[in-house]
Design a protein around this nucleic acid. Structure first.
Lengths: 110, 110
DNA sequence: GTAACGTACAACCAAATGGTTGTAGATGAG
DNA sequence: CTCATCTACAACCATTTGGTTGTACGTTAC
């Protein structure tokens, strides 16, 4: 998934990826430092395969990337994806602020 | 759903709500002006009931609220929900910036 | 070389999601 | 009053999601 020029399905995947507390925790952790997939799996009360799937969801959403390192696969945060998601919500907020400013204008001139 | 002090399932619902292009479009539209549910339904190539469900998802996520107005139900944006979601992503980004700053420090100090 | 580790992936399952149609109740218009 | 409109909600369906176990394979350690 390329990070700029996001298609609507890309944005779907991005927010879908955030809609799970385990995945949000993974994002926070791998932002601070790299983890192997089994290193991550050890943190949660679920199977290795389940965590592996969560990492795959984050990878498809371009929120993390994996780097092969010997027999381990190191997972690290991809800041571009996170930044893009934040930016989208900021744009939605901007629409609201524009409307609020317009209403204030009308009241002032009214 | 109370907007501050969000539980993890609350945050799940918040991001889940954004993970659909029709719902994102509804959020943008009702931020600019109120729509009745049928007014919204007329905009999309799906049944009234489907749009009604999307509005219900947004309502459970505290992103919109409905106000009864005669026989119509006017849907409008709830800015608190949007703001909270944006804030969460900003916090995640902050973690990344802290790490970037720490790395810069280490490099500067050798 | 062999055993243990880390990963990938298939098959399976229950529950949730996103859509449909149909029914029924309030409200407004003529 | 009656009819059309707006909404709510149930029942149903296909697909996706989030989990499981099992198997296979490359890599590392001993």
């Amino acid at each position: 998934m390329v990070v700029d020029e996001l298609s609507e399905p890309d944005i779907d995947r991005l927010f879908q990826a955030f809609a799970d507390s385990t995945r949000r925790d993974i994002v926070r952790r791998v932002t601070v430092e790299s983890y192997s997939v089994s290193g991550l799996a050890a943190l949660y009360d679920m199977s290795f395969a389940a965590v592996q799937k969560h990492v795959a969801v984050l990878e498809r959403a371009a929120l993390v990337s994996k780097e092969k390192h010997g027999r381990e696969q190191l997972v690290r945060a991809n800041h571009e994806g996170l930044h893009k998601a934040r930016q989208l919500l900021s744009e939605y907020e901007a629409i609201w602020h524009q409307r609020a400013a317009r209403i204030a204008d009308i009241l002032a001139q009214g």
